[in-house]
Design a protein around this nucleic acid. Structure first.
Lengths: 148, 148
DNA sequence: GCGACCGGGTTTTAAAATGCAACCTTGCAA
DNA sequence: TTGCAAGGTTGCATTTTAAAACCCGGTCGC
């Protein structure tokens, strides 16, 4: 298990994250992976992406240790792409994107796919960044501090 | 003020959102915009992106009503790109990406830029999707439901 | 045992996006 | 009026993406 060396001198976590997951197909792959998709063919059918592009993005995500390539769990002789623990931690990212889309990109009455809590059947409440005292944070009351 | 018509038949909010903000430069522009950057030249210096590409991305974000082009607030004869209310709602998205990067893409001891609550000076706590009863949700106990 | 088919790709070639440099324009300011 | 900076646009070479064709190792029908 080799230690990854991360993108040189970039000290912004957003920029590093975007190097790994910040393109259209990678994000859609992760959306599907978080919904339980594991097989090459299933990703391809779901996304409608060219096989060479899918192959490339899956390889990059495996190299970044966001996905892990493992023997299929169902006895078929193929392999499947599963989320690593790092990859599973992207659930809040995809959920935040989803919730922004839900609130801002659909007209009233227009249907969209919903994310439900399977234990209760209810929609997942909107995520908000909270301060340590529990109050809701907006961009206005935060700031970036550079290291050093 | 024309009503935008959204991307046809795509019913996944993640997919629609990615059409608007799901590329490298757009996400980095939004990171900077949420940190208070407003001017073309400031985005360019911060990102190191080619001017034509920056111009294109800013135009798209304005068309998508994520950014708004307004006269500069400081009396200079130029215009500035400010976040619309839709754009400001991307704060949880960029914050989730940032927090994933912080936890997964830096080696121990390696410095990175931090997001601080300006009222307390403390780092912003990690965002998590919560169920309606306040318990933490993971991808495992959620599911997508298609409309109709 | 052999031909067809399916999963999971790679290769080839054409189209589109990107990046760089040069240029243009407007508003000052010397 | 010359110069200079902000905020772009344009032209062109390079890189990335996409679509389609091809390949290759199983498995299945027979």
């Amino acid at each position: 298990m080799s230690e990854r060396v991360h993108s040189s001198s970039v000290t912004c976590p957003v920029a590093r994250a975007i190097d790994v997951i910040g393109d259209r197909w990678s994000l859609l792959i992760l959306r599907d992976a978080l919904d339980g998709v594991r097989r090459f063919g299933d990703f391809q059918r779901s996304l409608g992406v060219a096989k060479n592009i899918l192959s490339d993005r899956l390889r990059r995500l495996v190299e970044a240790e966001v996905l892990v390539l493992a023997p299929a769990s169902d006895g078929s002789p193929y392999q499947e792409y599963t989320l690593s623990s790092t990859g599973a931690q992207l659930f809040p990212v995809v959920t935040a994107i989803r919730q922004w889309g839900e609130k801002n990109l659909f007209d009233r009455g227009e249907p969209y796919t919903r994310l439900l809590d399977t234990r209760t059947g209810k929609p997942v409440p909107v995520m908000k960044p909270l301060a340590s005292d529990g109050s809701v944070l907006s961009a206005d009351n935060t700031a970036i501090r550079r290291p050093g």
